[in-house]
């Protein structure tokens, strides 16, 4: 069975590798500059993700949200671990958190808001913001912080962002909305959605954490 499995995967990989040889050298690219500026962007990837294929992105954000719903729902019946935080609490770390928190926030927002001009965008910015905040929160004791944060606000930010994104996507697809404002707005909404989402996932995992 095991040998057969490796043989099958190897054959499959070989077949795929062979199939790519027919694709090189790659044909020249169709012109893309005009379409990019037409969407109000300088970064063509942002023009595709947030402009031409905003519908896909919308579905992708839905996939992400559903995973979050699943994380919350499936962990609900399990007991939570109380006690020692994964990172040792120390005054130095706490001071570092105070200094770094605003910096990470500004960096995340900048990365998202400038996503249509250069590399960046809502998703990586949200991931960085969410996980950075959580790493720093670990220094302060995550349970305490999670209790302080108003849960309704978080979920309103998360699902409100989602709903606004759906409206934006629908408008772009049916009414032909386009322009830089659309991209910036979409990126910021994704940032809101993904950063709260990343926070929620990590916080839930940390509350039920295992041995590390």
């Amino acid at each position: 069975m095991r040998r057969g499995a490796w043989l099958a995967t190897l054959t499959l990989g070989g077949l795929i590798g062979w199939a790519t040889t027919g694709l090189f050298p790659r044909p020249p690219l169709p012109p893309w500059e005009a379409v990019t500026s037409q969407w109000g962007a300088r970064n063509a990837v942002a023009a595709v993700v947030l402009g031409a294929r905003l519908y896909d992105t919308l579905l992708e954000v839905l996939v992400f949200s559903m995973a979050l719903v699943g994380v919350r729902w499936a962990l609900r019946p399990l007991p939570q671990t109380e006690g020692r935080p994964p990172v040792a609490e120390s005054p130095l770390l706490e001071r570092a958190a105070d200094v770094l928190l605003p910096a990470i926030g500004v960096f995340g927002v900048y990365l998202a808001a400038s996503g249509h001009l250069g590399p960046g965008g809502g998703f990586p910015a949200g991931a960085i913001l969410g996980s950075g905040l959580l790493l720093l929160a670990l220094a302060r004791g995550i349970r305490a912080l999670a209790r302080e944060l108003p849960q309704p606000l978080l979920s309103r930010l998360e699902y409100g962002g989602l709903a606004a994104l759906i409206v934006l996507g629908g408008g772009s697809l049916t009414l032909g909305w386009r322009g830089a404002w659309l991209l910036v707005l979409a990126n910021l909404l994704i940032l809101a959605k993904v950063s709260t989402g990343a926070w929620v996932v990590l916080e839930h995992f940390a509350a039920h954490r295992g041995e590390v």
Binding site: S65, S155, Y159, A163, I166, V167
Partner: peptide, 8 residues
């Protein structure tokens, strides 16, 4: 929208 609203 109805789904997102339902979650909210």
């Amino acid at each position: 929208l109805a789904g997102a609203g339902g979650l909210l």
